[in-house]
């Protein structure tokens, strides 16, 4: 049934190549979007827990704004509205960016800002799950707040939230498909084009589905590996069989008895 992928499309390339090109855009968007989201989310998540009220409030506002507007709406806002709000010359420059980039950059900003809000909440939860004694011990040793976060709190919080960050990685990767609405020819958009040219809807979207699934599994395995590698010796639960680990929910480690 997937033989259609080896047929030549209207531009002379095979339909399979169309899918691969779409996959390339999907992966670039997810990859760069994720690292941006992670960086912003880390800063905002820390911001939500610091003593400085202004920073805490600003971080809260960021999270509420970007988490509570649907991704699709945010995508349209970045693509259609933001260029109009900017100074005319800058707005025109954005609107005149050559085809893939004109859609890619708004999509990148949209997905990373949205995912960052979600990452920030995970980071905050991780920081708040740490025993208060960790912060106190660092303070008592004369570490500044900044160093306390960087050397003591964040390294522990990140380890705690690897499992929930896994869902955010998969989330941004799946949300890349929303970028088709502003004209980025990512995987879903290419599948739809194949289906429109060939009427082989089932084959086109079936192939896209398989690719999405396989990559999600790969991402999951990668994150499990990171989780395993980052685990602190002396806190590790007894080794389980892999099949069990897939189902196991991780409990936050209460560091002190």
């Amino acid at each position: 049934m997937f033989t259609v992928l080896f047929d030549q499309g209207s531009d002379g390339r095979m339909y399979g190549v169309w899918l691969l090109s779409g996959l390339g855009w999907t992966l670039s968007l997810a990859f760069f979007g994720w690292w941006l989201a992670f960086a912003i989310g880390l800063v905002v998540g820390i911001g939500r827990t610091v003593e400085n009220r202004t920073i805490a409030i600003l971080s809260r506002v960021y999270v509420e704004v970007f988490r509570n507007i649907p991704v699709l709406v945010q995508m349209f806002l970045w693509y259609f509205v933001v260029p109009e709000l900017l100074p005319a010359s800058l707005g025109t420059w954005i609107k005149q960016m050559p085809p893939p980039w004109g859609a890619f950059f708004p999509a990148l900003v949209c997905l990373s800002f949205y995912t960052a809000a979600r990452v920030a909440e995970q980071v905050r939860a991780g920081l708040e799950a740490l025993p208060a004694g960790q912060r106190e011990a660092a303070a008592a040793l004369g570490l500044t707040e900044r160093r306390t976060y960087w050397l003591v709190l964040v390294p522990q919080a990140l380890r705690l939230i690897v499992p929930s960050l896994t869902s955010e990685v998969m989330g941004i990767y799946k949300n890349t498909s929303v970028a088709l609405t502003i004209g980025l020819l990512e995987l879903t958009a290419e599948a739809r084009q194949i289906s429109e040219e060939t009427f082989q809807t089932f084959a086109a979207f079936g192939a896209a589905t398989i690719i999405y699934l396989m990559l999600a599994l790969a991402a999951y395995q990668l994150m499990s590996w990171i989780d395993e590698r980052a685990r602190i010796p002396g806190t590790a639960p007894p080794a389980r069989r892999k099949s069990l680990r897939l189902l196991a929910r991780r409990l936050p480690e209460g560091a002190s008895p």
Partner: peptide
């Protein structure tokens, strides 16, 4: 605080 050492009931070593 650098001049004043403190030992806590729950140790509070940095587990990582």
């Amino acid at each position: 605080r650098r001049e004043v050492g403190m030992v806590f009931q729950s140790f509070n070593l940095f587990p990582h």
